[in-house]
Design a protein around this nucleic acid. Structure first.
Lengths: 180, 180
DNA sequence: ATTATCATGTAAAAGGTTACATGATTTG
DNA sequence: CAAATCATGTAACCTTTTACATGATAAT
């Protein structure tokens, strides 16, 4: 799937691997993330398949930059993927739930510590979403109006999910504290 | 991670691979799922590591059953994992969001068809959650009271997440219909 | 002085999916 | 008569993570 994220970003503008990582961290990370090592290997594969081409930009005293540009074949592959409907919902993977489900013999304090830690982590993420709102809701050129609408829609889901998660953590901390 | 799901289930009762798959489908599937092929290979690995042992139960006119039982080492590994706190939140992967984010040049009708299809799929899942509530909220023996409390907590999060997803899909369908 | 940023990559391992192979019994 | 259920497993492949390797510059 990462391949389509990379094609999608490079469809806006040519970029090197490092910049792609930053772009994802600042925009898609609440629904798709990747490590640099995977980005580099996937870019290489994509170039071998002819969906990208790269050029080297020489730099002094830093490694040269390899800048990737999407090809017509790449645009075709991206469009084909975008137009193909998803006929299933995303199967969830949530390690905290998995742990909690099997924690009946774990001490109450261990469970509460875990839940409170997650609460703190989600509270941090919730703050970062405020900053993201300023970006996606920023007025932009008319040719990016549709993009901005969709970016804001994905941000909105992320925000709602975090609100639910925080609320559930609060309720569950109370529940475990009083009933477990 | 699947290894801990399997150890966790086998900590309740010995089971074969096929039954483990069913157990997961009926209990953990909204936060953890696995294919039969992965279950079989993981069980094999776990036995090689001494965390499980298996016995064959002969059957006539069906393949013999291989029934796995958790060992003391397995219980130790499970407990160690359960007590080790998660210090990160789950990095999300949501293919629908990824598609939507890059769909500015896709036709409005294609996007709406995709969103409506997802809405129908989530509505189905929401119905199944009603049945799950009956199971987790069913009164049980006192020695399972803590288990039941935690199972119900995980079910509750799943239900809340589906409600958010459905609400967001409704809002986004309206938004795309009027603004895109 | 240490940490973060910039910048690229490879290698090995782990985790997970898809496809293949077999075949009887039960339900619709 | 077709599909679902029961029951096991292997092989190939794809995706992702972790660890390794290098090294200068800028900020704290």
């Amino acid at each position: 799937m990462l391949r389509y994220a990379l094609l999608g970003i490079l469809n806006y503008s040519p970029m090197n691997g490092y910049e792609l990582k930053q772009f994802m961290d600042n925009s898609t990370s609440h629904f798709w993330h990747a490590k640099l090592s995977q980005i580099y290997t996937t870019l290489k594969t994509l170039e071998e398949e002819g969906l990208l081409v790269s050029t080297i930009e020489a730099q002094q005293e830093r490694p040269d930059k390899r800048i990737y540009t999407i090809t017509d074949a790449g645009r075709g592959a991206l469009r084909a993927w975008l137009e193909q409907p998803l006929t299933e919902i995303e199967p969830a993977k949530d390690t905290l739930m998995l742990k909690l489900f099997f924690s009946a013999q774990v001490s109450k304090e261990t469970i509460l510590t875990q839940l409170r830690l997650q609460r703190a982590l989600y509270a941090q993420v919730a703050e970062q979403f405020g900053a993201l709102a300023e970006i996606t809701q920023m007025p932009r050129s008319p040719e990016l109006a549709k993009d901005a609408l969709l970016w804001e829609a994905t941000r909105s889901l992320g925000e709602r999910l975090i609100v639910v998660y925080l609320g559930w953590l609060d309720d569950t901390i109370k529940l475990v504290d009083t009933q477990f």
